[in-house]
Design a protein around this nucleic acid. Structure first.
Lengths: 358, 358
DNA sequence: ATGAAAGCGCTAACAT
DNA sequence: ATGTTAGCGCTTTCAT
């Protein structure tokens, strides 16, 4: 008798707390299970058209939003993906994240980000995501250290997709045809008439570095240009590394190069710094080309000629593939993306043009 | 009678599925509530030291990891923070994310990322996070469009902290003393002897842009240098904008400037491009200085003189503050960060040094 | 076509 | 100091 609370509850009344499925159901005068079936868009739902409408309307009126946490608990899935990146402020990784976020979002997943501090890779970064039951799958990227990745992938209790490279012992990956990209870049230099072409490389064990190095050698071989080890130095993937490697090459090369193929944007930027320090002009005295593209390539002086790399696509495909794995639509993800196109800008030109030095 | 299943369950048996609290409890011979109290490190726990140890040991043996989803459902918290960013491939935002991720992690939260597509700000980006019950709080950043942010913050059912600027109508924010940074930058130019100092500015309504513009004018006024509107052009925060604004200034200025203060890294990069296109030399003919710092500033040619901005700190403080808000330890977050220091590199020098033009 | 009921794994009163 | 109990909001058999 004391329960004669204001029962004329026909008003929207999304007063304070979020409406639950229960609220929707009672407002529509049905059981929660029925409401669930409708709202979830259950395939074989067999629900009366009229009730369907009533439920939908109630949901709308109450501004119902499913509680993902509850659903997660019930179906034992988190509907989120984790992505572990070693350096966030590197265009490669940010673009990868953009793509991954888009893929995840399209499929109703969220993207959870884990930054792996350089130098503390062993610690927990991957585990944090993998073992804490927070994600249904893991996208992993790495620079040079393979062992950590391998270990993490093994320990993960969820599907893992490796981005940006293929690796022995890891089944799923989306990677890039680095050697093809390198070949395109070097061929461009050769077409311009260069024969003394230097290469700033990655560490020469991991897959990416090797791929580009191979492409470099292949292109030279095709053109019948002999390979000169004195023209190669390891730069890694940083600006500083690029600058140092460039200096090494300039000092050690018997006959100095007229062009250089840098393994990545950062290395190329470093190289240009070093080159200009020596008073050498780009591209008059030395042409520079690299792989990967983006606003920074345009912003440098001179603007950089690059072979475009579908980095965002890689993130997107990785996310979609990972979700396919999670939801059992696929059992393996393995695809290689190809370089997009050569974008010729101001950093490359024919060798030895008669430009006077000031 | 038919329940004589293999009951000698003393083996570790983390065979397949994750161990639950229940598993731990029964292995330790206690009730789940007791196990919960211990494992959660409940303050006023009053649990026997001996049982405590037994529980801890069982948890370890079974490699128990709490199911956050279940806990979330129970306590009605997700333990995750959302961060919405307009452009991921911009050092400002990536550094902000790095900081935010660290703050969140330190407090046991995860960071969920939402990329706001340029041009589709209205859509759902913020709502996706805010209304889907996926996060306990929101970190928001924005470029120029305030209305969207305001609306999003209003609609959010969770606490919101605005990063990188203060805004009327938004209570919580972590921002940066832009005008102080601008003053430092411009004073540096003045100290070098410059008097014709251009400014590439942001849109002149939002807070950040105004702050820097104000700092620019203040520094000029302090030094008794008259303000010349012909030396100012709006660049916004992009490379392209920087290049265009620089060209505008070079064309329109009656007496050409000997130095330029660009509002941000990207604009400075664009400006340098434009400058070098005209065959003007940096810093001999024209000095360039900007606010914000990072590897890119070092990588450019010439390396850029900048006033350092604690961007990562901003993300970190934002995350910590947001969590304080969520957990009720604070009721308002409002702090202003100050510029770190002036880093003098190759892009600034005294005006009119007797350098011959080639 | 719809409802009843159980339960995902955890926490938090409330007993004892 | 420890156990009992209820329930967070949802999905999913199993009935009807």
């Amino acid at each position: 008798m004391s329960k004669d609370l204001p029962s004329d509850s026909l008003s929207p009344l999304p007063s304070s707390a979020r409406a639950t499925l229960n609220d929707v159901a009672s407002h529509a005068g049905v059981d929660v299970s029925t409401a669930s079936r409708v709202l979830r868009g259950d395939q074989k739902q067999r629900v009366g058209e009229e009730t369907r409408l009533r439920i939908l309307e109630a949901a709308k009126r109450l501004d119902y939003q499913p509680n993902i946490t509850a659903r997660s608990l019930r179906v034992a899935k988190t509907f989120s993906l984790g992505i572990a990146v070693p350096q966030l402020d590197n265009p490669v990784f940010s673009q990868m994240i953009i793509g991954a976020e888009r893929g995840a979002r399209e499929r109703g997943y969220s993207l959870l980000i884990a930054h792996i501090e350089e130098g503390f890779p062993d610690d927990d970064a991957y585990e944090r995501l993998a073992s804490a039951n927070r994600v249904d799958g893991l996208l992993i990227t790495t620079l040079d250290d393979n062992s950590v990745v391998l270990r993490a992938a093994r320990k993960a209790r969820v599907p893992v997709v490796l981005l940006n490279r293929a690796m022995q012992g890891i089944d799923n990956s989306i990677y890039f045809d680095s050697s093809e990209a390198a070949r395109i870049a070097v061929r461009h230099l050769i077409d311009l008439g260069h024969t003394r072409i230097a290469h700033l490389s990655g560490q020469l064990n991991p897959s990416t570095g090797i791929g580009r190095f191979a492409g470099y050698r292949d292109a030279l071989a095709e053109a019948g240009i002999p390979f000169d080890p004195g023209l190669v130095a390891v730069s890694g993937y940083t600006i500083k590394g690029g600058a140092e490697a460039m200096r090494t090459v300039l000092r050690q090369a018997g006959t100095s190069p007229t062009a250089v193929f840098a393994i990545t944007l950062a290395a190329a930027a470093g190289a240009i710094m070093a080159i200009q320090q020596y008073g050498i002009r780009v591209p008059e005295d030395l042409s520079v080309v690299t792989v990967h593209d983006g606003p920074i390539a345009e912003a440098m002086f001179p603007p950089l000629t690059t072979v475009q790399m579908p980095v965002e696509q890689m993130g997107y495909d990785g996310a979609i593939g990972l979700i396919d794995l999670i939801e059992g639509r696929k059992t393996q993800i393995n695809s290689m993306l190809h370089p997009l196109q050569l974008v010729v800008r101001g950093s490359t030109a024919a060798p030895g043009q008669p430009h006077d030095v000031a």
